[in-house]
Design a protein around this nucleic acid. Sequence first.
DNA 1: CATGAATGAGGATTCATTCAT
DNA 2: TATGAATGAATCCTCATTCAT
Lengths: 197, 197, 197, 197
Amino acid sequence: MVRLQKSIDKRNALIKATIKLVNNNGFHAAPMSKIAKTASVSPATIYLYFEGKQDLVNKTYLEVKSSFTTYAFATYTKDVDIESGFKKIWYRIAEFKLKKCDEAMFLSQCDNTPMIDEDCRKEGIKHLQPLLDLWKKGKEEGIIMPLSDYVLYAYTINPLSFLMVAQKRGVFKLTKEQINAAYTAAWNSIKKNNKNK
Amino acid sequence: MVRLQKSIDKRNALIKATIKLVNNNGFHAAPMSKIAKTASVSPATIYLYFEGKQDLVNKTYLEVKSSFTTYAFATYTKDVDIESGFKKIWYRIAEFKLKKCDEAMFLSQCDNTPMIDEDCRKEGIKHLQPLLDLWKKGKEEGIIMPLSDYVLYAYTINPLSFLMVAQKRGVFKLTKEQINAAYTAAWNSIKKNNKNK
Amino acid sequence: MVRLQKSIDKRNALIKATIKLVNNNGFHAAPMSKIAKTASVSPATIYLYFEGKQDLVNKTYLEVKSSFTTYAFATYTKDVDIESGFKKIWYRIAEFKLKKCDEAMFLSQCDNTPMIDEDCRKEGIKHLQPLLDLWKKGKEEGIIMPLSDYVLYAYTINPLSFLMVAQKRGVFKLTKEQINAAYTAAWNSIKKNNKNK
Amino acid sequence: MVRLQKSIDKRNALIKATIKLVNNNGFHAAPMSKIAKTASVSPATIYLYFEGKQDLVNKTYLEVKSSFTTYAFATYTKDVDIESGFKKIWYRIAEFKLKKCDEAMFLSQCDNTPMIDEDCRKEGIKHLQPLLDLWKKGKEEGIIMPLSDYVLYAYTINPLSFLMVAQKRGVFKLTKEQINAAYTAAWNSIKKNNKNK
DNA sequence: CATGAATGAGGATTCATTCAT
DNA sequence: TATGAATGAATCCTCATTCAT
């Protein structure tokens, strides 16, 4: 029992070290030896918790992705109307990008890299289901445009990653106003807005 | 044939090889030796055309970015109204993402990686000026929402990258209809909503 | 056997391999890979014991230099008169050049090459202090000519290196008689000539 | 004729470049490409004048060695007594070490390195004959100690190299007084000094 | 469970040399 | 004669992984 506890600590330390190093200089600057050192652990120990580097990276991705979705849906309940539900989720995601900066950065680094297995990527998306359900309902009710989920995601959620990275690079500042404006843009892009014509 | 001049052909072959290999398996799977082999050239030859790997990657990025913007603005002229201009550019970019798939994929891999120098990145953005000018005018004329250029980019251009990558992964198909729908979403997200005029 | 400690044996083997290879064909013929092979070790292992090639070479130099001075002063005590002391040290050095031939050859290779860091070189000279003290006293007592230590070294110790290298090249043989003659030459060159007293 | 002239210029430029680069950072910092560049010549051109790097280095050595001995014996004539003759030669050599600093430095770098072929080395020593003849006569006349030529060289000429290198390193200054003192040391070390006892 | 030492395979880069002109 | 481009082999070094303890 006690040993098991200790183990989880080490596993977490390794995950954290991976995130930190990848964020600092990208995947190519996160060798196993450095990850081990950052986690105050022997290189050999990593292989007690993970099958290898690929596995470590994948597991880290899943962990962070799960943390992301948990955060996103923490305050969401199905019993609200489409726009309110969407708004709630969207703002939670925006909040995540701002508050859990390390994790958000890590996810964005994972976005377009072949470092993450395709299977693992699919696994990571599963937890997004509540949002997909919401969209489905929204489309059925004629409130949201009948677009593919990918398109909806591309126009509402993904821009937040782009803006967060821009902020991280120091070329842009995500103020409260900017976020509100971004929400409006997001909603406008997918809402069916010809009802009162 | 001609040996008195460093052959532009070899340089191009190296750039192309870099794009290809990075696209296939990411930066970490594009060693100089493989790049050389792919370009049918000796490893040492690379160093006649580029200062090192960093330089090769940077130059490749700039080359592709330039190709991208050239394509984007090829049919654009300033003398049209805001929406027409935007539409023209947007569709050219969409076309680029579809037709110049390799180059588009490469650019998306560059987006969130620290492999590209920050200076180089800034250099690459310069050529986007015509679009920024258009947006400026659009904002002044009250046609486009008064948003930061980063937000405008995040909501109109960046989603295309996301969708292109999704398509490349085989989880999504960018049909003509999808593109038209995407355009509508893009425009809706940034146009000034004048329904209650 | 024991693996919990970096084995001093391996370090020594590496130092020895370096000496051997440099002696055989000079610095330029002692690549890390060959040093590793000669020491029956993986190339990567070298980097557990040394920071890089520069460090390996420097450390080897210091090691040998230290071995040299230890040998030189092993039988020397301050309580003898100047000439006896000098003679003792001189003969020990001569003995070193003959018996520890590998080390002596290595040191002579280091003499005029920029492969050794200047700092490291200075460090190596420190241990020569007893001889310098002896000289100082000898000069004060009017027994040794009032020459710079560099000149004293050039005329008494350095010739031994020259002769040893010549012997190694096979063009000359350092017999006992030659050594005695060399000692006389050395002492004559620095002793205060008191013939006309 | 004109072409031949030009050729000699290039050959000389190459020799000079070799000396310069080797002096600056040792043999390992004098790649063919740099030598070519320093001599304002194409790398390929080197191979028109020399068989390869080994040959270039050897020929450079011989050239410099020849320049050295020429200088050393320029003012020497056989018709003087032993000590005067020796003194003349010795001071010329000292002058060479000071005035032709580049060449002297180069020679000292060649001293203990296996970069120079043994055959080539022997060839270089040949021109020293006048000094060896002088010594022979001196020994026969009972003026110089009956020592091997190597020992005589080690105690009279070689120290000058040592001192010159020390000066080059900045740890020692070869003033006129030092040189005179050095000469005395040199002569004392080999002269048969018990004649008037 | 945990470790530090050890490693072979592979990475970027340089070099002496050659080739086509 | 002279060249700049081109290169395969070799160099230093790093990395993911394993092993003996």
